[in-house]
């Protein structure tokens, strides 16, 4: 049963991520990212990280994804309703490119070889930790204790970082911060 749930959530995550890769529409990519994030939350629950799963859903799905969808809508070109050219493969490996198809090949080759290397390492690695028994235990109490004792300084630091980043993002996105040729501020 647990295995079945794991495979379902893993398939949800990977299929969502792969659909982000292959879709040509930016808004569809955002919705497939939603699938991938929900699957990741399910995987967190199966790995006894229930608090982290809820945080994942609240922060990513409720915050970041809404922000991304707003970004999609704000950077949409109104004069071209269906701009199919915006999802062509990237042309970053441009030194030896021959046509459009070769850039797909280069990118897929890089990621595929990285996955092959990681897979070989994971299969060969003999983690002694992974042979220990593990039980499911709610992590909410422990996270609360840890946040107030061992991780209190990183907690406060990240709070200040988040505040500064959000204030800075609000200022950057406002029309007052219009980029000018000569900076007057």
């Amino acid at each position: 049963m647990l295995q079945l749930a794991f495979y379902a959530f893993a398939a949800l995550t990977l299929i969502g991520a792969f659909a982000v890769l292959v879709t040509r529409n930016v808004l569809y990519a955002a919705f497939f990212l939603l699938l991938a994030l929900l699957g990741t939350a399910g995987l967190f629950v199966l790995a006894s990280a229930d608090f982290l799963a809820i945080a994942q859903i609240m922060i990513y799905v409720g915050g970041v994804l809404v922000l991304v969808i707003f970004g999609v809508m704000l950077t949409h070109k109104p004069d071209s309703p269906i701009d199919m050219s915006n999802q062509q493969p990237n042309r970053i490996p441009s030194s030896n490119r021959r046509g459009v198809g070769s850039s797909w090949i280069v990118g897929t080759l890089v990621a595929g070889s990285l996955f092959a290397a990681l897979f070989i390492v994971l299969v060969r690695a003999n983690f002694r930790l992974l042979s220990q028994p593990v039980g499911w235990k709610s992590a909410v109490n422990t996270i609360g204790m840890q946040l107030m004792t061992e991780y209190v300084v990183p907690f406060e630091t990240v709070a200040i970082l988040l505040l500064a980043a959000l204030v800075g993002a609000t200022y950057l996105a406002s029309p007052l911060a219009k980029p000018t040729r000569h900076a007057t501020r």
């Binding site: 991520a17 982000v20 890769l21 915006n86 062509q88 493969p89 970053i92 990118g107 990285l114």
Partner: peptide, 11 residues
């Protein structure tokens, strides 16, 4: 790896 492919390939 899928995320890396998205970063490299998408425009």
């Amino acid at each position: 790896c899928i995320g890396l492919t998205v970063v490299v390939l998408k425009r």
